[in-house]
Amino acid sequence: MTVASLPAQEALNRYFLELRCKLLDIAAILDRIDRGGPAPADPRLEQVRQALRELTSTSSGRAERIQLIFSRPYDPNWERPSLPRRP
C-alpha cells in the first residue's frame, strides 16, 4: 500500500516551528561545548560537522546519509563463523 506525503508547502507550514526549535537546539548545544573551552580532538565533533554540511544539501535522503555518517562501515568480506556440526 503506497502512502502519499504532504504537499511541500503544507509540510513546511506544519513543521516549521518544530524545525526552527530543533535548529536552535543544535546551535545551543554547539555554543555549550564552546563555552567549555577549546574544542577537544574528538572524532564525534567531525561527524557532527559532516552532518551539518549534509543538512545544507538540496537533495533528498539527508536522514539516511546522516545516519551513515554516524555508522561504523560494513565490510562485506567479514569473517563468518561456521555452525558446529550436530552429533
Binding site: Q67, L68, F70, S71, R72, P73, Y74, D75, P76, W78, R80
Partner: peptide, 15 residues
C-alpha cells in the same frame, strides 16, 4: 544500537 546498527544489520542479513 547507534554506530553499530548499520554494520550489524548487514552482517545479520548475510548470516
Amino acid at each position: 544500537h547507534l554506530e553499530d546498527k548499520y554494520m550489524g544489520t548487514r552482517m545479520i542479513i548475510d548470516m
